[in-house]
Simulated scan of single mutants.
Amino acid sequence: MENKVLATVNGIEITDAILDSTIASLAPERRSYFESEYGRKQLLDQLVSVELINAFGTELGLESDPQYMAQVEQALKDIKYSFTMNKILGTITIEEDEAKEVYEAHPERYQGQESIKASHILVDDENLAKELITKIISEEISFEDAAREHSSCPSKEQGGDLGEFGRGMMVKEFEDAAFAMNEGEMTKSPVSTQFGYHIIKTTEKKGSEPQKFEDVKDEVMNKMLQDKQMEYYTKLMTELQEKFPVEYKK
């Protein structure tokens, strides 16, 4: 494809290739706009403006300005550093087989979150809570009916059902009691929290079984890649300090 010259500013050519590379460097959410015919024209105008200002900067003698030249030198160092790092770290890769070996050797690192399903009855009076516990145990009333009749929590409409939740989602006193019980078990005494007195029944428990490799593959590979890159970087720094003179001034 011909690299068409789109504009010339003070002898400097702005070509299709320059415009394309500028668009490619943009963030994806901005890139799509400038890929349109109108967007390309707008970006071309911006590039022309840049070259006009740069030409004026040359006329002002910036190349002999010490502050400007110091920033140019630093910018070149930063670009060189970035390209060099990309070049050396880009050669480091992690294969899926390597990641699977690490996953299988350390299953404890990839546990799923422990969760439960529970229901509760919330009341303001401790004696009422004790009375309801007695009635539920003696089967004078079902847990669900007691919740609908006495609970002050909106969950009473579902018989006290709070659904599924993990650790850290409920107040500590409630969580400790709910997670300590087996499936189908109910607290034998009211659990006091800042909200009142709870009668809690744990209806289902899900353990922290290991997650499938496919579900955590990207996480495992990214972590291994970061570790491998850091290990290489640390080793490289030691080698380079032996190769190139380094002297710290006091």
Rank of each mutant, 00 (worst) to 15 (best):
Q226G: 10
T234Y: 07
E242V: 07
M230P: 01
N86I: 08
L62C: 06
Y248I: 11
G159M: 01
T187K: 08
K87V: 02
M170R: 03
E185N: 05
G207I: 00
G90H: 12
A129S: 07
N86C: 09
E13D: 07
L26T: 06
A7P: 00
S25V: 03
A118D: 00
T22D: 06
G166H: 03
F244A: 04
S119N: 08
Y38E: 15
E37G: 10
G207S: 12
H198P: 00
I116D: 07
A177T: 10
P107Y: 03
Y197T: 02
Y81Q: 04
L47N: 05
S208G: 06
L52N: 05
K130N: 15
E149N: 10
G39M: 10
E126F: 12
V216L: 07
I94F: 14
S151P: 03
G184Q: 10
E157G: 00
K41M: 09
D215Q: 11
D125W: 04
K117F: 03
P245R: 07
T203A: 05
Q67A: 15
V50H: 13
G168W: 01
S36K: 15
A27N: 13
L6G: 02
K223N: 13
G112P: 01
V48P: 04
R40D: 01
E126N: 12
E219F: 10
N182M: 11
E231V: 09
H198G: 04
K223T: 13
S192A: 14
N182E: 15
